[in-house]
């Protein structure tokens, strides 16, 4: 299978890429291509021009600076999963990376592509929401910063305007810890649903909760009510149960091939409890 014809452009700098995108509104940015190329091959979509940002230097680095980490959009999913500092400081991010597709896809696929694709079943968006990440977005008009919670608009739709490129992901290290739980039908599959839970604790009480949901609606969802409820509370069974109720309320489930609404609600609650209690392993 071949994609429809397109022009290929591989700029060497962000400025060059932004300039090209300015004159080519329908051009599509290519990162690792593990979502875009299958779509092009199946002819679900076709684009007149492809802008490959893989040759821009500096977009594939992970830099810890002060209390934050800055991750370039071209960092491969496998590198996210294997980076020992990320594993230590943001375990929820490492765990999610290990759940994405398969090792071969993870060697090409990038964190930036996973985020910008806007697929509700992609795993990194939920993690970004749980960690309150900030995205640096560049265009010929300059740079702007968008919070993860303002970024995911709808299915395959993000806050990226025409001509804009995601050029950096910034996450604050607050000393929190988290888990990512994903339920899938078989190895390498997309989520039936997934949940990222990140907790900053103050003794036995939650100081700040971050909860992101994968495939629980039209796009990745931040369970704000549940987060608010958990802040300042301890992790008693009763509180966890109440938070789980609020998480389910934030979802927009539909009956489909993956199961009924009832099944998904129950599954999500179970995954949440497992994530909070830190019990390893999702049901196989």
């Amino acid at each position: 299978m071949f994609p429809d014809k397109f022009e290929y452009y591989a700029p060497k700098s962000i400025e060059e890429a932004a300039k090209f995108l300015d004159g080519h509104e329908d051009a599509k940015v290519l990162a690792g291509g593990q979502s875009l190329i299958p779509l092009l091959k199946l002819r679900f979509t076709s684009v007149p021009e492809i802008v490959d940002i893989g040759r821009i230097k500096g977009l594939d680095s992970i830099v810890f600076q002060g209390s934050a980490v800055e991750i370039g959009p071209m960092v491969r999913t496998s590198e996210i999963g294997e980076n020992s500092s990320i594993r230590k400081k943001f375990p929820v991010l490492s765990e999610a990376a290990g759940h994405i597709a398969d090792p071969l896809v993870r060697n090409m696929g990038t964190i930036g592509g996973d985020i910008c694709h806007g697929d509700p079943a992609n795993d990194f968006p939920a993690v970004m929401l749980a960690l309150d990440a900030e995205f640096e977005i560049s265009s010929s008009r300059g740079k702007r910063t968008v919070k993860a919670e303002d970024f995911f608009v709808d299915t395959f739709a993000t806050a990226l305007e025409p001509g804009e490129i995601l050029t950096g992901i910034k996450i604050q290290d607050t000393g929190s810890s988290g888990r990512y739980m994903k339920y899938k039908k078989y190895a390498g599959d997309f989520s039936i649903l997934g949940i990222a839970v990140n907790l900053l604790m103050d003794g036995k009480k939650v100081k700040k909760a971050g909860i992101g949901l994968t495939n629980c609606g039209a796009t990745a969802i931040k369970a704000k009510d549940a987060e608010k409820f958990m802040n300042g509370k301890d992790l008693s069974d009763e509180n966890i149960e109440k938070a789980a109720e609020l998480i389910v309320k934030a979802c927009d489930f539909m009956d489909d091939d993956n199961g009924s609404v009832k099944f998904k609600e129950k599954l999500l609650k179970n995954l949440f409890v497992k994530a909070v209690k830190g019990i390893g392993g999702v049901p196989k």
Binding site: G33, P38, L42, L104
Partner: peptide, 22 residues
């Protein structure tokens, strides 16, 4: 369709699915 891995090659030492790389 990026599922089976029969097309796996090493690119700069990393295993990738060559049917899903330009």
């Amino acid at each position: 369709t990026t599922n089976c891995g029969a097309c796996t090659v090493l690119m700069d030492g990393r295993a990738v699915k060559s049917c899903t790389v330009l």
